[in-house]
Design a protein around this nucleic acid. Sequence first.
DNA 1: GCCAACGTTGGC
DNA 2: GCCAACGTTGGC
Length: 136
Amino acid sequence: MAYWLIKSEPDTWSWDQHVKKGADSWTGVRNHQAKAHLQAMKKGDKAFFYHSNEGKEIVGVSEVVKEAYVDPTDKTNAFYAVDFKAIEPLKTPVKLTTLKSEKAFADMVLVKNSRLSVQPVTADEWKAIRKMGGLK
DNA sequence: GCCAACGTTGGC
DNA sequence: GCCAACGTTGGC
């Protein structure tokens, strides 16, 4: 099982909308690095849901329910989408500033390359962030 | 609102 | 194929 982090601006698509919808398709990724990560995702993989701009914090956990398929919103068919469903919210959202202040996360993609919208998360990072967020 | 970082585009 | 110019993202 692999772990990921997906980013969204709450103005565009928030965690609350994600929860309400149940399962939805993650479309609109137009970056080849991000695309590669989407293609690597397997059904059942877990992903943190991160709010960029507003909040700048990890707010919940989602799960891959459908593996990469051609993004219907992309006319060139060069990019992919993945379907996620909301699993559980973090009891305490984990702020980007918190991650930045902890040495353990100095190498985390979110800290190092904040612009990448779909990122891998290591098992260690995953465990530590869940704990900080108040989940088992 | 500014600007740094990064990706993409297009002239040469 | 190089690289300057431009656009976008996202933290501050």
